[in-house]
């Protein structure tokens, strides 16, 4: 009977495992292998050398780029958390009927199902030298000449990240909040807690798993990104993803692979650390 149970489980998980084996595990193995290869200007050749890693780990650029990547991740995380938590809190505890909750929640999630690239492009008419933001600020007399740092800067990169990824905070936090037993809130207020105390001492601790899941999404999306940084900084800023994509563009696959291996290790370490605080399967 137990053999039978394992067998049906395996059979049903087989298509899934097959896809992940071919398109996830094999590519990772391939990247690890190629990261030890060598490259000429136009081709790559099998080898077993540590040159790529040596170059990577001794270069100043690597550390600067890593610092930049972490900076983007931390700042984006802070903003998405604050905005996402507030929005989810409003939906879960201040909107009173389920119909409205679902309707407003859907309104928040719809952009997730539209194109990221289009949503990035949409910022250009806002932030450019002659964009809406600059003309509005000038007509109000706040500034005399257009601000240059609105577009193609750290500011626009982080703005786009927050714009694209706040949903990844809203959804899991809202999900955990909706599962909080409302009688706990009542108990807190019966015991004399103010709304603020209830929020801080009851709701926030109970929402931690949702916050963790949202954090995992946002941090990995920002750390692995290359396109938002390239597009919103006008190729003036770098992160690890861009390092990889630049190497790819130059056909330097071995060095791209070495960078990719280190990025993957970093991301998995961060996630591993977070998974210690939350059991994802229980929280869905």
């Amino acid at each position: 009977m137990t053999l039978n149970r394992h067998l049906t489980g395996w059979l049903m998980a087989l298509p899934l495992t097959a896809v992940l084996a071919v398109f996830l595990v094999l590519p990772i193995i391939m990247i690890v292998v190629v990261s030890f290869w060598g490259a000429t200007e136009w081709s790559i050749y099998p080898a077993f050398q540590f040159d790529n890693y040596e170059f990577l780990l001794t270069s100043n650029v690597t550390y600067r780029v890593y610092f930049n990547t972490l900076k983007y991740a931390v700042i984006t995380w802070a903003f998405t958390l604050i905005i996402g938590f507030t929005v989810a809190y409003f939906l879960a505890f201040h909107v009173r009927t389920l119909t409205w909750q679902i309707a407003l929640f859907l309104l928040c999630t719809i952009p997730f199902w539209t194109s990221n690239i289009i949503r990035m492009i949409s910022w250009i008419p806002f932030l450019g030298r002659n964009g809406l933001a600059n003309s509005a600020l000038m007509s109000w007399g706040v500034i005399d000449e257009p601000l240059d740092w609105l577009l193609f800067s750290d500011f626009s990169v982080i703005l786009a990240f927050v714009h694209l990824y706040t949903l990844f905070m809203v959804v899991p936090i809202f999900n955990t909040m909706m599962r909080i037993d409302k009688s706990l809130i009542e108990a807190a207020s019966d015991a004399g807690a103010s709304a603020w105390q209830t929020l801080w001492h009851v709701i926030v601790p109970l929402t931690k798993p949702g916050i963790m899941i949202g954090t995992i999404f946002v941090v990995t999306l920002v750390m692995g990104d290359f396109i938002t940084v390239r597009f919103m900084s006008g190729s003036q800023k770098a992160n690890v993803g861009r390092l990889i994509s630049n190497d790819i563009a130059l056909l330097q696959y071995p060095s791209a692979s070495a960078t990719a291996v280190i990025l993957l290790i970093t991301v998995l370490m961060v996630i591993g650390l977070m998974l210690r605080f939350v059991d994802i399967r229980k929280e869905l």
Binding site: F23, I31, G241, I244
Partner: peptide, 15 residues
């Protein structure tokens, strides 16, 4: 879910 997308692109492309 968490692997940077460009790694899939790179790895599958290489294979």
């Amino acid at each position: 879910l968490v692997i940077p997308s460009i790694l899939i692109s790179l790895g599958v492309g290489l294979i």
